[in-house]
Every structure is written in structure tokens, then in C-alpha cells.
Amino acid sequence: MTVKYTEDHEWVLVEGDTATVGITDYAQNALGDIVFVETPAAGTEVSQGDDVAVVESVKTASDVYAPITGEIIEGNDALEDQPELVNSSPEGDGWFFKMTIGDASELDKLLDEAGYKAFCEGLD
């Protein structure tokens, strides 16, 4: 089990053949109160970098990208009624979707925890 990060402030939890994806605490903080999340449908084939989900606060809408290539296994239905989970538990119950890992080598190019932390510090 490893956690990887992207420069678009997404986290990717790798467990066996499955990746769980969400947005980081840094991202939810920057967005403010989340009011709506649109997650992708199971079975959708996605390529790394595709916009696959949308997260909205009152005044902004941001795309969430596929961090790797693969197929969507499941979107987090709980976010439909409780988008605030993204604020309260961004890296837990507020996950966005689970997907297969089409090309494991793509994971290698993502940031690790220390790398992401350094990336965020560079932004402030």
C-alpha cells in the first residue's frame, strides 16, 4: 500500500491492482466549502490527464484529472448527498473514485509524500 500525489493536488492510494483517488487536504483548503462533486461512472476508460470528475465550491469549479490510465471501478456515491466529506475527510471518506491501474509505470512518475510536501511549500 503506497500513496502517491500529483501536482494537481490529487492523491492516489495504491492497494494491489486498485487505485483510490481523491483531492488533498491542501486542495480542499484552497477550494473552501465544497458544495458539489461529480464522480465518473463505473466502466469509463480513462487516460492519464483526462478530466474525469468535477469539484465545486460556491464560486469555483475545478476539474479532477485521471492521475493514471485505467478503468473506473466505482465513483464515491456518498459525495452526491454529502459533498462536505471532501472538506472533513479529504484523504479518507472524501475519496472521489477507484480505478484499475492500466500502466504501473505511470505511478512511478508521481510524487511521493515528501515530494508533494515540498511542492506545496514551493507554492506558498
Binding site: 458539489f36 465545486e56 465550491s57 460556491v58 464560486k59 469555483t60 469549479a61
Partner: peptide, 12 residues
């Protein structure tokens, strides 16, 4: 629900 609208979503 103004995130649907042009002043926020622009070309989307």
C-alpha cells in the same frame, strides 16, 4: 449554483 455559468465556468 452559479458554477454552471459563464462568469465562473467560462468555456465550460
Amino acid at each position: 449554483l452559479s458554477t454552471r455559468e459563464q462568469h465562473i465556468r467560462r468555456e465550460k
